[in-house]
Design a binder for these strands. Structure first.
Length: 302
RNA sequence: GGCCACGUGGCGGAGUGGUUACGCGCCGGUCUGCAAAACCGUUUACCCCGGUUCAAUUCCGGGCGUGGCCU
């Protein structure tokens, strides 16, 4: 079972409910809830939730690490195997669209790029600018250069470093996909889709609740580690703005406004992703989700 | 009551007698190992009426509204 939906749509609660009901394990598919240091600010399931039903891949990574889709795929494969052994239904939930795509459509067999090469490529990006890298890509991997927007620093850098590390253009690697971990035919993909206005109101209410629950202290503790601000965990919604508030750059109200805005934008992108990248998924209103999924589990029932 | 200033798209904010600044928001889209990232696109604008003019959001007059000062 794959349960996705925008931030604050009630995915976790639904997953917990289903897991308790049918005997399942909740496996995280959220790129930020994996980080140990970010519990409150990412709305990770509480210890009580985790005590009720088995959970996997929550807070198992240190914020100093660069987690990735690739690592998630192998972690998820392991978690699914374990659930099979225990006779539990894997219920994968989270909002990271790319993880679901990799899970159901496979990833290319690109070897890991060394930290040295990555650092060197990033340094070049900073020194030479995106345009220079894009021009270089046009000579080593013309299709990739044509496909990518000239200012898309992230993907251009990736294409350059894959070539630097493997001597083969990224486009070649993409032609050889690995078999997906999960056969989409054997899974139910559900996307919770709340009314936009309701969702935006929930985002605001939820951020206020996070602050009351100690989000600022959590960010202060993370801040004290003096990690590289470019790390993924340092970019979790609310973290950059709350850090700026802690530094005295802006008021808590301003930081909260910005954090909520980032979250709103993100939910919009999530919607776009699932709508267009995940064919075959069911889009359901949160209130109707549980009955919908239970109905699909028992084909005889309506 | 008098004087002055101003009325531009959801908001902020330029500007021009003829060719729809721009920013933000909203909305839509792209996506194969940092994805809560990175990137792209779009958006019923010139308060109302009359005049001048080939042509008015832009000039002139009146009205209405807003703000400031004065009585």
């Amino acid at each position: 079972m794959l349960i996705a939906g925008p931030t604050a749509s009630g995915k976790s609660a639904l997953a917990l409910d289903l897991a308790a009901r049918i005997g399942g394990v909740v496996i995280n598919a959220d790129s930020m809830q994996v980080y140990r240091d970010l519990r409150i600010i990412t709305a990770r399931p509480t210890p009580e939730d985790e005590a009720r039903v088995p959970h996997a891949l929550y807070g198992h990574v240190d914020a100093a690490e660069n987690y990735s889709v690739g690592r998630w795929c192998s972690d998820a494969a392991e978690a699914m195997n374990e659930s099979r052994v225990r006779g539990l239904v894997p219920i994968i939930t989270g909002g990271t669209g790319l993880y679901y795509k990799a899970l159901t459509q496979g990833l290319s067999a690109i070897p890991p790029v060394s930290a040295d090469i990555r650092a060197a490529t990033r340094a070049r990006l900073a020194a030479e600018g995106v345009e220079a890298l894009h021009a270089e890509l046009a000579s080593i991997d013309p299709p990739a250069a044509a496909r990518l927007m000239p200012r898309d620093a992230t993907r251009i850098t990736r294409a350059i470093e894959v070539f630097a590390a493997t001597g083969r253009p990224l486009t070649d690697w993409h032609r050889e996909g690995l078999r997906p971990l999960l056969d989409p035919q054997r899974a139910i993909g559900l996307f919770l889709m709340p009314d936009r206005a309701v969702l935006y109101a929930r985002i605001a209410a939820r951020f206020d609740a996070m602050l009351e629950a100690g989000a600022l202290d959590e960010v202060a503790a993370l801040d004290a580690r003096r990690l590289d601000p470019a790390l993924p965990a340092m970019k979790a919604h609310g973290v950059p703005w709350l850090r700026r508030h802690l530094a005295g750059d802006l008021s808590l109200e301003e930081a909260a406004e910005e954090a909520m805005r980032d979250t709103r934008r993100y939910t919009k992108r999530q919607l776009t992703w699932f709508r267009n990248q995940m064919p075959g998924w069911d889009f359901v209103a949160p209130e109707a989700a549980r009955d919908h999924i239970l109905g699909r589990l028992t084909p005889g029932a309506t």
